[in-house]
Amino acid sequence: PAPDVPGDSTIDLASVLSPDVMAPILSNPEIQQRLIPFLPTGENLPQTANELQSTMSSPQFQQAMSMFSAALASGQLGPLMSQFGLPESAVLAAGKGGLFHEK
């Protein structure tokens, strides 16, 4: 069913977690260690903190985040979020079709 969400109530995660916002967060080695395993792998794709930074700033990653936001806003990701152990408030919000609504 199409969720009844006003256009301005959704937020694009790509703008929430912009490279500027992420830069200080990504300087934490613990965070680096947790994210690096999820980077693309392959020839000339080092699993390093630098690569993490540059991947997150890339248009390809930004696009993935925007697509994720859109899917979240449409209510498709609720079950998935809880399966991945995301907090209940976020899951509820996602299930309702809103992105991180305060309610």
Binding site: L35, F38, L39, P40, F61, A64, M65, F68, L80
Partner: peptide
């Protein structure tokens, strides 16, 4: 390689 990658697990972890 980035275009082909599925970033869903990355984003969820983040």
């Amino acid at each position: 390689a980035r275009r082909r990658h599925n970033f869903l697990p990355f984003i969820l972890e983040l």
